[in-house]
Simulated assay, not measured.
Amino acid sequence: MAEQQDQDDRTEEPTQRKLEEAINKGNVAKSQEISTLFVLGGFALATMLAAPSSAGILVEGLTAFLRNAHQVPGDGAGILAAARQAGLVMIAALAVPFVVFILAGLMGAGLQHRPLWATEMLLPKLERISPLSGFKRIFGAEALVNFLKGLFKIAIVGTLAAIVLWGERARMEELVTLDPRLMAPVISAIALKLLAAIIALFFFVAVADAIYQRFAWLKRQRMSRREIKEEFKQSEGSPEIRAKQRQIRMERARRRMMEAVPTATVVITNPTHYAVALKYEPGMAAPVCVAKGVDALALRIRERAREHDVPIVENPPLARALHASVELDAQIPVDHYAAVAEVIGYVLRLRRRRA
């Protein structure tokens, strides 16, 4: 009941991180019909390319065996030697089709997803041997879909085979009158025609099944709101950690400002609340704010300026306006050019007088 309730709570679409974790564990969307389609295609290809040579190898090997059957000793060693020779003939005849089958199966699996090495799928799990889980796998919704899909494939393939073979009934009736050596091309042609029809049908079945498997896989990966919140906390960090990181960033920014105050040209202040340090050098388009602060931070900026003989000018309206409108390491707004130019001009004249 609790598991059903948890499944019902999973109403949110999975995140990219959730999908990547499932893929890395070997849980991917895959359609068995795609692999079946490729195996059928490989069988058809092997029939077209390798059937004549394989048949020739079998005929030659078995003919030689049957002609010399009377020479095979009747003891155990002779029988084993004959069986070994027959096995070698079968391997030589079926090696090419077998390789084609393997390659076709690998292509069918590789087409659906990139190769993965997921050891977690090999680990034993209690749910795999649980009778309740096994009952759900056998009588669940997915098992019902697979059962109906199997019935549909049997019915449609049987119907298709009957239609194709019914159209070839005249040629099949002639097989009994043909020389055995001439039967292979006729049987091969009928088999290829039947395979082509089945492959064409399985193409649509495989495409439909691949779409359904993708939909079902995404549905299984759905998340509850609680899982999304937990993932967000894991990826972004807890509020306490984020607050600590924000505090560290602010401390670093204050340290950089304090280091930049000695390079300022002037510090414009409201006597008790605001302080804005501006830097201007010949060739600059406009003065740049290198430090600013209020209350305790403003006091530290003023103290730092006094320690390094940076001029401090009291101008409360301008200090408040600059603190509100200019960002650190940014040029002052155009609206304040005139007022700031007057202050900087005053500072420069003062420096010349002292010099």
Rank of each mutant, 00 (worst) to 15 (best):
L122H: 11
A184I: 12
I34W: 05
A2L: 13
G42F: 01
S31R: 03
Q85I: 04
R137G: 05
V72K: 10
E281A: 02
V290N: 08
L49D: 07
E168W: 08
A243P: 05
A170W: 14
L62D: 07
E13L: 12
R246P: 00
H323N: 10
A22I: 09
S130D: 15
N315I: 09
A253Q: 14
E120F: 13
L49I: 01
L151Y: 06
R181E: 13
R225P: 02
A296G: 08
L40S: 03
A64T: 02
T159L: 15
A291E: 03
H70G: 04
D295T: 10
G158P: 09
V276H: 13
V347Q: 01
P333E: 04
A118C: 12
V164E: 13
F98H: 08
G158S: 05
V334F: 02
I268G: 12
L94S: 11
G76E: 07
R17W: 02
S224L: 05
V310S: 04
K30G: 04
V326M: 05
L45K: 02
D179L: 15
G237I: 00
A319V: 02
A319N: 07
D6W: 02
A95C: 06
A277N: 14
M257H: 08
M121Y: 08
R226H: 15
A324S: 15
I163R: 15
K25G: 03
R252Q: 00
K153M: 02
A330E: 11
A82M: 06
R226G: 03
I34Q: 01
K153N: 06
W117L: 10
R255H: 06
L116G: 07
A355C: 08
R254T: 00
L350Y: 05
I268S: 13
H336A: 07
A2H: 13
K149M: 08
D329S: 11
T177V: 06
I241V: 12
T119Q: 10
A277R: 07
L88M: 05
S31A: 01
P262T: 09
V28E: 02
R220Q: 15
A162C: 09
V96K: 03
R255N: 04
T265R: 00
Y346T: 01
L66E: 01
E12R: 11
G41T: 07
I102R: 06
